[in-house]
């Protein structure tokens, strides 16, 4: 199968491809195909045609001619040939389905409901035969049975099995050129984080089948195990470990975290770090980064009389590491 999206994504290559194909006359079909896509692409650039992933191939009819012939040896021992009249058979296009699958969002997190849409088309002129649609949902997505809507054909039954379900249309078939749209919703459960987010829908008829896949980016959302760390380094003038008016922040101070992250305070002495793994986190003030200052004593909290701060960072939570400093003397010489 020709990867159309590939050509779309690399327009420059597509142009080169056209030139190459023009030289190679044997591949006239590919030339036509390439030019067709180029046209589609130009149209989509100009906004005429929405950018869809699959272009239905026009139904074709083929004229199959046949002629029979025979040979024999006549009385004078001369070989002779005889040819029948040509017969011609007009073969109509076969029912090869196309299917497109989209979701209403590119990324989801546990608790979200994702609405999927399927568009099944029969590009042929003949009916497709009895149609069924099967969709295998990604790990952790829960199919919501009541949400299924199909049109114009109405489904008659839903069979679910593990993560997949099958829609049966009671033997109805898609007429040539007819389209069937299917809408259904799925709930993202916490299990989804472990999965790939990719699912595959299949439309099946007795003579053909087509499949389309869709990938959903799964974010941990409420289940994220990261938190945010904020803090400040400031000149503590009343030795209470908190910054009040008149206690300026110290710029460019360095705080090292237990995982080796190096945090630099801004000109106001503030810092914040997003996406910090939850758990017991420790930050230590690098005293060499603030010459002339060192840690101030805290006259009210014993725990803050330390070079490091231990915080318990909850998943998705916020924790604070404040360092009060004071003008230094007796800096270490060893």
């Amino acid at each position: 199968m020709l990867r159309l999206d590939w050509i779309f994504s690399i327009p420059g290559s597509a142009y080169r491809l056209v030139g190459y194909l023009a030289r190679s006359f044997k591949r006239r079909f590919w030339l036509q195909a390439a030019i067709a896509f180029l046209v589609v692409q130009l149209l989509s650039w100009s906004g005429v045609v929405p950018n869809f992933g699959l272009t239905p191939v026009a139904a074709q009819s083929t004229n199959v001619t046949n002629q029979a012939g025979g040979s024999y040896v006549d009385a004078s021992n001369t070989p002779q040939r005889t040819v029948s009249n040509p017969t011609s058979l007009q073969a109509t296009g076969t029912a090869s389905l196309t299917i497109i699958k989209t979701a209403d969002r590119g990324a989801a997190e546990p608790g979200d409901v994702v609405v999927y849409r399927l568009l099944v088309r029969n590009p042929a002129t003949t009916p497709s035969g009895a149609l069924t649609i099967t969709d295998e949902l990604p790990l952790g997505l829960q199919f919501i049975e009541e949400s299924v809507r199909t049109s114009p054909l109405q489904f008659t039954s839903i069979t679910t099995r593990d993560r997949s379900f099958t829609l049966d249309f009671g033997g109805a078939s898609l007429a040539g050129g007819q389209e069937l749209s299917v809408v259904y919703a799925a709930l993202v459960t916490p299990d989804a984080i472990r999965g790939s987010g990719r699912n595959v829908a299949q439309a099946i008829t007795p003579t053909s089948s087509a499949s389309a896949s869709n990938e959903l980016a799964i974010r941990p959302g409420i289940l994220a195990d990261c938190g945010t760390l904020v803090g400040r380094v400031f000149v503590d003038k009343n030795f209470d470990g908190e910054q009040q008016a008149g206690e300026p922040g110290v710029p460019n101070a360095v705080v090292f975290m237990d995982d080796g992250n190096r945090i630099l305070t801004d000109p106001d002495g503030l810092f914040s770090v997003a996406n910090v793994l939850a758990g017991n986190r420790v930050g230590t003030l690098d005293l060499t980064s603030l010459p002339g200052y060192t840690l101030a004593p805290n006259l009210f909290r014993l725990a803050d009389n330390s070079q490091s701060r231990l915080v318990q960072l909850e998943p998705g939570g916020l924790a604070r590491m404040n360092f009060g400093v004071t003008p230094a003397f007796g800096e270490e010489q060893g």
Partner: peptide
Amino acid sequence: AASPRIATLTTPSADILVINRALPADL
């Protein structure tokens, strides 16, 4: 001058400290 403490410094140490209230060295 205050002698070195384990973790933090003391409150201000100086020949002359002018302050509204005397401070303990540390907690």
